[in-house]
Amino acid sequence: MFDENKLYQRIQHDFPLHARPYLSTGEAFDLAEHTVLSLLARDVGSGRISRIGAVFAPNTIGASTVAALNIPVARLERVVERINDDPAISQSHVRDGHRFNLWFVAGARDQVLLDEVLNRIGADVGQRPIDLPLEREYRADLGLPLAPGHGCHGPDALDKPSSLKHPVRPALDEADWRLAAALEVGLPLTPHPYHALARRSGLSLPETLRRLTAWRQSGVIRRFGAILRHRHFGYTHNVMCVWNVPDNRVDSVGVRLAQVPYVTMCFRRPRRLPTWQYNLFAMVHARSEQELATTLARFHAMDDLAHAPSAVLRASHCYKQRGTHYGSVMPEF
């Protein structure tokens, strides 16, 4: 019997880079091309899958940051609407557990434009967001394990957190920027999706595939394939845990923290004193309250974290979630 989870496990980070990718994907599972396309169309339409496309390593193209605001409940919906209307915002969540309750991800083509985004938001809502750019990754987005019994460090993880290296920032020409912009909405669900991507980028098909392959091999594209939405696949608990760890120990603690099951991402970000004292972040996605409790207990059992100032911020509502848009607005496929 066909197991669609095995298909999705494969194509989260092993999506083919050649002319008929849905055909070759189907062949590996004895499925016709139209069956694969129908399955993906169903799940993109239902929201289970965000898109088929690229996850770029942070700050290898453009600039991005995590930011937060302290918004009273009475103003929350209005502020969320203002933030989400900005095309530079790719994610926004309300999180309980700290006075900074509205969290969002912003991206732009360069740091100057990103600063302008944050300045506009600050002026419009009457509060400058705390800006928490990435300083170091200890665990990156490796996709969503779908095999029963595996946490977010399943057997198909792409990398070990202790060996995670940030790729060299490439020099991008205008064709690269057009290609990055064309990728933002994901590949179309047609038999020849890279032909459409090439047309949209103003490149030949061979040149489009060459550039994508180079980005993938260098690590500029961290992952290329199906971008699944956690909640739709049973990961209903989305929690951000933060600690204030001494600067001379944060890297060693971060590497160990990244190996705890159900930690999906782990970063060092700057403190913003006096309003934000934390410099170590771990994202946890769990399928049950028990999985979450076990993970939090493992954190507390770590000597370096047991007595560190900390906070647990649970996502109570996701308002927006898509890939970061670095390029200019372009027409749909």
Rank of each mutant, 00 (worst) to 15 (best):
E4I: 15
E4A: 12
E4W: 14
E4Q: 13
L7Y: 02
L7F: 01
I11A: 06
I11Y: 00
I11F: 03
Q12G: 11
D14G: 10
D14A: 14
P21R: 00
Y22E: 11
G26Q: 04
E27A: 15
F29N: 12
L31F: 08
V36F: 00
S38H: 07
A41C: 08
V44L: 15
I49Y: 00
R51K: 14
P58G: 04
S64W: 01
T65P: 06
A67L: 04
N70K: 15
I71P: 00
V73S: 13
L76S: 07
L76E: 09
L76F: 07
V79L: 03
D85M: 07
P87A: 11
Q91A: 04
H98G: 10
R99Q: 08
L102F: 05
L102I: 12
L102Y: 12
A108C: 03
Q111W: 01
L113I: 06
E116W: 04
L118D: 00
N119T: 15
G122L: 04
A123Y: 03
Q127I: 08
P129S: 08
I130V: 10
P133D: 00
G149E: 04
G151H: 03
C152E: 01
D159T: 15
P161W: 06
S163T: 15
L164V: 11
L164W: 11
D173K: 08
E174W: 03
W177R: 12
V185W: 09
G186K: 00
P188V: 12
P188Q: 05
L189W: 01
P193N: 10
A196C: 12
L197W: 00
S201D: 08
L205G: 03
R211Y: 04
L212G: 11
S218Q: 13
I221E: 03
I221C: 07
G225R: 00
L228T: 01
R231P: 00
F233I: 09
C241H: 08
D251R: 12
S252A: 15
V255K: 13
A258C: 08
V260T: 12
V263L: 05
M265Y: 05
M265W: 01
C266T: 15
F267Q: 07
R268I: 11
L273M: 12
Q277T: 14
L280V: 10
F281T: 12
F281A: 07
A282I: 10
M283F: 06
H285D: 07
T294Y: 01
L296K: 06
A297Q: 12
A297K: 05
A311G: 03
S316Y: 00
S316R: 11
R322T: 15
G323S: 08
P331W: 10
E332M: 14
